[in-house]
């Protein structure tokens, strides 16, 4: 885990993530749990309780202006190498107003000016506050994440499924999900390896 000012990672640290991290640390010191600044996928880990404040800051800070929630994904970790079973909810944010200079385009490794946020929630009770009122585009991504991974987004009026039928059993992208024997009387034969 690289930290700001760490001499081993300072040379390769992603300036986009670093700038957002500095702003977050200054305004919301309790929000950031961890940060990875180098490598192919730099990200900032934030607390679920602070997510909305973080997102509002990232959107409204005139020097950052992350005006678009590009993607929300979730990764299931039932048996992680360390710590308790968790689900990571990952937000990829994009700014069209504030862009790094042209030299960033030729940067080796990551040359795409997105910002990734990671929120780890306990697998037994995966709840994350909604960001739908901050970026309306998050609406369908949150519905999809609930539908397939079973992460509950709180603070929304409703959270219907989007891709699967309303009465589908469970959330199929969970690692411990098992195929139902049948659906409305139609037998289901799981494909090999699934």
């Amino acid at each position: 885990m690289g930290e700001v000012g760490d001499p081993t990672t300072a040379a390769t640290a992603d300036p986009v993530t670093e700038r957002a991290l500095t702003a977050l640390r200054a305004a919301l010191p309790d929000a950031v749990v961890e940060a990875q600044l180098d490598g192919a996928h730099p990200y900032i880990g934030v607390r679920a309780t602070h997510l909305r404040a973080v997102c509002r800051l990232l959107r409204d800070d005139p020097a950052l202006q992350y005006e678009c929630c590009h993607l929300i994904s979730a990764v299931d970790w039932p048996e992680p190498a360390e710590g308790e079973a968790r689900i990571d909810v990952v937000y990829h944010l994009v700014s069209y107003a504030i862009r790094p200079d042209a030299s960033y385009r030729t940067r080796p490794g990551k040359n795409d000016p997105y910002l990734a946020l990671k929120v780890a929630v306990p697998r037994a009770c995966p709840e994350v506050p909604t960001v739908m009122d901050i970026w309306i585009g998050a609406d369908w991504h949150e519905r999809e994440t609930w539908d397939l991974m079973g992460v509950r987004f709180t603070g929304r009026k409703e959270l219907p499924r989007i891709l699967l039928p309303e009465d589908w059993p469970g959330h199929p992208l969970r690692k411990d999900w098992v195929y139902p024997a049948s659906y409305h009387g139609v037998p289901i034969i799981p494909p090999e390896g699934m």
């Binding site: 996928h41 993607l71 990829h92 795409d112 990734a116």
Partner: peptide, 19 residues
Amino acid sequence: GEVFIRGENPRGELSIYMV
């Protein structure tokens, strides 16, 4: 490791996040 990539397909940005 993990990787996030987006590219321009005719309809817009196709993004893939792989772990």
